[in-house]
């Protein structure tokens, strides 16, 4: 979760900058006739530049969500703009510090434990090696969270892999009164339908460990596609895209708050 770290000025520094700026601005106005309009304009630009650090802020603990580069042949790289758009919206609407980047990692990567939430999507087969199952289990048992979004066609393989991960736990259907539908936005009808594939209703499933949801599986909805840039999926209306974003923000906030 390394973010761009900028220095935020202290109150002393801000006050000093403000006083200097006021003095400088006053001086410019007084001498406007003597120095001419070009120099006055240059001075004005400088005054504005001096004000920039006053609005600076600390950026630490920024949220990033990498996608999992899994084996088995599925297109793990699909919907590349979905997560950056989600993170951008989280920053703009909820003031959560984020880095809206499309990052891909393997379960075996050392970086896995830098990200408390990971994202998995695609259309084809998903397969975890044994060592990946063990590592993912450790990750989830100790505070990590996996969001699996079925873009269409991974249902069979992901259910198989989840059984490898938690043989004694079932994917549990989340009821409509589950907090995940009410965190930021009220979604009384549950998870929205973004793309139609098999005519089945959209569903959310969870795997719970010691009372905490560790895996969320969104099926027959295609939230990820709904988060993509405008124009990527031309059939998506702004309302549909908004519904996708609302659900995704609910998911993000639920994972952080649960």
């Amino acid at each position: 979760m390394r973010g761009m770290i900028r220095h935020i000025p202290s109150v002393h520094e801000k006050t000093a900058l403000l006083i200097i700026n006021c003095f400088f601005f006053g001086l410019l106005c007084t001498l406007r006739k003597k120095i001419g309009s070009v120099i006055f304009a240059q001075g004005l630009c400088l005054a504005i530049l001096l004000l920039i650090p006053i609005s600076g802020s600390a950026e630490w603990g920024t949220v990033q969500i990498p996608r999992i580069q899994y084996g088995g042949g599925g297109d793990w790289y699909t919907d590349p703009t979905s997560i950056p758009n989600l993170l951008k919206a989280a920053s703009e609407k909820l003031n959560i510090p984020t880095r809206p980047e499309n990052i891909a990692i393997k379960i075996s990567d050392a970086d896995l434990f830098n990200y408390p939430m990971i994202y998995l999507t695609g259309h084809g087969n998903v397969k975890f090696e044994d060592y990946e199952v063990n590592r993912l289990l450790t990750y989830l048992d100790n505070g990590g969270f996996l969001w699996v979004d079925d873009c269409y066609g991974i249902d069979k393989s992901i259910r198989r892999e989840m059984r490898k991960l938690y043989p004694d736990k079932e994917l549990t259907l989340l009821p409509l009164d589950h907090p995940i539908y009410h965190m930021v936005y009220e979604l009384p009808k549950g998870i929205p339908k973004i793309h139609e594939h098999d005519g089945k209703p959209p569903e959310s499933y969870g795997i719970f460990n010691k009372g905490r949801m560790v895996v969320l599986y969104t099926h027959e909805t295609d939230i990820g596609c709904g988060l993509e840039d405008v124009g990527v999926h031309k059939e998506d209306s702004p309302e549909i895209r908004e519904q996708a974003m609302k659900m995704a923000l609910n998911i993000l906030v639920f994972v952080m708050a649960q």
């Binding site: 603990g61 949220v63 003031n95 959560i96 408390p116 906030v253 952080m256 708050a257």
Partner: peptide, 8 residues
């Protein structure tokens, strides 16, 4: 604001 610190 929701953050990982709280979650952990």
């Amino acid at each position: 604001s929701p953050n990982w610190e709280q979650s952990f």
